[in-house]
Design a protein around this nucleic acid. Structure first.
Lengths: 151, 151
DNA sequence: TGAAATTCAATGTTATAACATTAACTTTGC
DNA sequence: GCAAAGTTAATGTTATAACATTGAATTTCA
């Protein structure tokens, strides 16, 4: 369905505004879809993001700042999301011995097993964008890069 | 800058995943930019969204549900955002006489004056997408529509 | 008509974003 | 070596998303 029909606004000021509204709307649609998958493991997209980052570095621990640098959402509230993952037993943390300001955050076996279960369902994630061909996905990425390009 | 360089992840599983990550990342970039403009009037994007909807119907009031239906983010917490706008004196509400379950929400003169000040700066909003040509914006909208197309 | 079902706004709860501040710790410069 | 500056994680605050529940009001239907 086109953006004109999906929202009740019938006219846009210009094509740029229409594309901007469409981007915001489609983002909501995509995150909504992905949440369904994560909810089956009782985690949120941000919690998944941190788990994936920690698996990437395992068994090397990462500090809160290192995790934040690798997140899509740079300003996110890493300390508190990590604390929620600790409550769930999916990560653990301790003080870094070399620099006691830092914390060593590491994924637990339980956390890694959870990710393995999600790995088996990667195709469901890909299916969210399944209506696009590979070529269309490339064009989309190029256009998105270009939006941010001026900076 | 391309998405590969913007985030520290060097490889993606496929072009679909790369486009998905790029969409999420670019959404964050765009909303960040637009927030700067709204912050100059001390409102948030969601509060702006509701004000704009109410201006569209003025002087006819809308119920909470009617506002929500017109918002980009359907599940958003309309009652509480409206209450924050009331605190700021930008909207007012009363009980609908025809159906006392509903509330009549209407934009105030102060709210309309705020929107008029932002109207004068529409070009700043357009500039967020200014790196795209009109044709590219059309292609982007078509691709985004297609993502959601399969339902 | 009157009970049941439905609609609607308000409110409660948890997770997050974005920003500011604080306190602990380390590095720098003298 | 020590004071000042810088770094880091934690915490506080406000706004929001998403979901569930509640209670008031209305509609449906027997």
């Amino acid at each position: 369905m086109s953006i004109d029909q999906d929202i009740l606004q019938t006219k846009f000021r210009n094509e740029l505004q229409k594309a901007a509204v469409n981007l915001i709307y489609t983002y909501g649609w995509v995150t909504e879809k992905s949440k369904e998958l994560f909810a089956s493991e009782d985690i949120t997209p941000q919690q998944f993001n941190i788990l994936r980052i920690l698996r990437g570095s395992h068994p090397q621990p990462l500090s809160t700042l290192q995790i934040r640098e690798r997140m899509l959402d740079k300003m996110s509230d890493t300390s508190r999301i990590v604390d929620r993952l600790i409550t769930k037993g999916l990560v653990k943390k301790g003080t870094c011995k070399a620099d006691r300001r830092l914390v060593d955050v590491m994924i637990t076996d339980k956390g890694r097993k959870l990710l393995e279960r999600l790995d088996a369902r990667e195709d469901e994630l890909d299916n969210i964008f399944g209506n696009l061909s590979k070529k269309e996905a490339v064009v989309l990425s190029e256009l998105l890069d270009k939006i941010r390009g001026g900076k």
